[in-house]
Design a binder for these strands. Structure first.
Lengths: 316, 316
DNA sequence: AAGAATTCATACCATGATGGTATATAGGGA
DNA sequence: TCCCTATATACCATCATGGTATGAATTCTT
């Protein structure tokens, strides 16, 4: 015989509140309604749930035991309600995020950590990739969002792109590198050092080549390539190699005092680092909250970087 | 926003069974019915519970979390069902039982223990009393049943009485008592020993006086009175006192080899020990089961006592 | 790659549970 | 004993639920 959980919850509330009328009020129902519910339940069970003819309506032993189960069901129902609220209000959720390695490690991972603090219910599932694989995963719904550099004319028609920050690159090296001590930098000086490169299939690698070409150097050599940001960073710190990285990444690494950027103008691609999502699909509240958060953080970051640049210019 | 626990259970079952069709089958509903339930739930929550456009209907992160709560609710509901079954089938329940002390301690308590083994869900709440107090408690619904000696003409009109066993009394003493060694017993011999009596307000006390009178003794004295069966038993074992007890009580104590009955005919009141319940009120299944059990046990006991008597007579 | 098969969604109807208002009835207290 | 409050009943409206028939979409198969 199937019992209706709702009925058990009503029973629990009546026992809890110590009366039919009060229970009805707590449930937001009319007194006759709950009265009949209990009456029907008793009829179905074939046993009284309340002592008959007692004014403050005392539960039977049986009624009390059932009501305890009802109370637990009620608590679970409440739990489900708050869970649903957390999800629909964007306090909880699951976000599958993919992005280009360097930028993810160097910038986004910090923001993920910050976001985690304000939305404890969030759960990130991060992966790395470049344009093609990210787009594929996004379309296959294996990702909820992708973070990657993108030119305006590159944006797929079935996707929305929200720019976060310009894709400006800089040449970076360890703090205390010979290059940092001199004033104007000549081509020969740069040519004296070898380079650290990101994986050859990454857009950053193409940027690197473009950047080096743009400053006039033609015969450059790699000492290290293929590593993640952590490897690149470790390598840079311990050698006199140079590399090309997004300025935002270098900016955030500057805090540790180990990596600096060189004041050399490099050609920066007209791409922006941003968020790619499937078009025409409602973003989950959590995702919406998160993207908004990212936009705010990046705006803030850009502002700080601009400040820094102004100061540097003033000093120069 | 109130969620329907039923909906959560349906969700849980679908996730559990891995498909809408199978879930519907497990729930004993039609597929369109549960389909619509889920659809409505998603509409109400404003978030998808299942990944759209996936054929083996995969739950969302959100859907899975909700379904886990639903599963727990489902489990509780099942628990409530078995609880209700146990109560309605008489496998569980609460019995408030009152009775006269000696018979309760000497006979009924054994049967309570035996019953407990076969119906683990039972819960006894025992108390002691005599006719007036027992009847009062019964009428006030502070007791579900009373066990006491009763004459046919004494039965209150608002009560049902089910006899269990005749109220025959015997004179009891310790095993090895001088009286047990002799053949025929004379009045002088009995008069030599003092008596142990139950509480003065008990019917057994009146029986005691009647019994002693019936065997011709007139000047009897009490050495001990007012105790429960345990006290009486302890006292009897360590002294040469005599007492009057229901034969059933003595019979069950004989097993321990410390108390025996004397082969003296005493006037036995035409009362029967039995069960008193309120008339015109449906007995709970548990109570019904229990009373049936008591009747069986007492019938069995009576049979064994009759056997014993036949053997004794044959020996004499 | 197209058709078959399966799985899910929708439309429509019937019914029965639920909820409400009005009202009767029953305990409990003065 | 009477009154007050708490509970039960009667009656009605409605909406959620459940079912059958059917359409749509996706996966499997060939």
């Amino acid at each position: 015989m199937k019992l209706d959980s709702e009925h058990l919850e009503i029973l629990a509330m009546i026992v809890e509140k110590g009366g039919l009328t009060e229970g009805a009020e707590a449930l937001g129902k009319s007194q006759p309604s709950v009265s009949r519910t209990i009456s029907n339940l008793e009829k179905r069970l074939g046993m009284p749930l309340f002592e008959p003819g007692r004014r403050p309506l005392q539960p039977t032993h049986f009624g009390r035991m059932l009501s305890e189960i009802g109370m637990r069901i009620y608590a679970l129902n409440r739990e489900a309600q708050t869970l649903a609220q957390n999800f629909t209000k964007g306090y909880a959720g699951h976000i599958r995020i993919g992005g280009t390695p360097i930028f993810m490690d160097g910038v986004i991972s910090h923001m993920l950590a910050d976001f985690q603090e304000r939305a404890e219910g969030v759960q990130f599932d991060q992966s790395y990739g470049y344009f093609d694989s990210l787009l594929g995963k996004l379309r296959n719904k294996m990702l909820d969002m992708a973070i990657l550099p993108m030119r305006e004319d590159q944006i797929p028609v079935d996707c929305d792109f929200r720019p976060l920050i310009p894709g400006r690159n800089v040449i970076a090296c360890r703090a205390g590198h010979p290059m940092t001590r001199k004033g104007p930098i000549t081509l020969q000086e740069i040519d004296a050092y070898s380079w650290v490169a990101p994986p050859a299939d990454s857009p950053l690698f193409r940027d690197l080549k473009g950047a080096i070409t743009s400053i006039g150097s033609e015969n450059f050599r790699f000492t290290f390539s293929g590593g993640t940001l952590a490897s690149i960073q470790s390598f840079l710190i311990r050698t006199d190699c140079l590399t090309v990285l997004p300025y935002s990444v270098v900016y955030l690494m500057k805090g540790a005092g180990q990596i600096v950027s060189l004041p050399i103008k490099v050609a920066h691609p007209d791409r922006k680092l941003g968020v790619l999502t499937r078009k025409g699909e409602a973003l989950s509240p959590m995702l919406k909250t998160f993207i908004t958060f990212l936009e705010g953080q990046c705006e803030n970051l850009e502002c700080r970087m601009a400040n820094e640049a102004r100061i540097a210019k003033g000093r120069a």
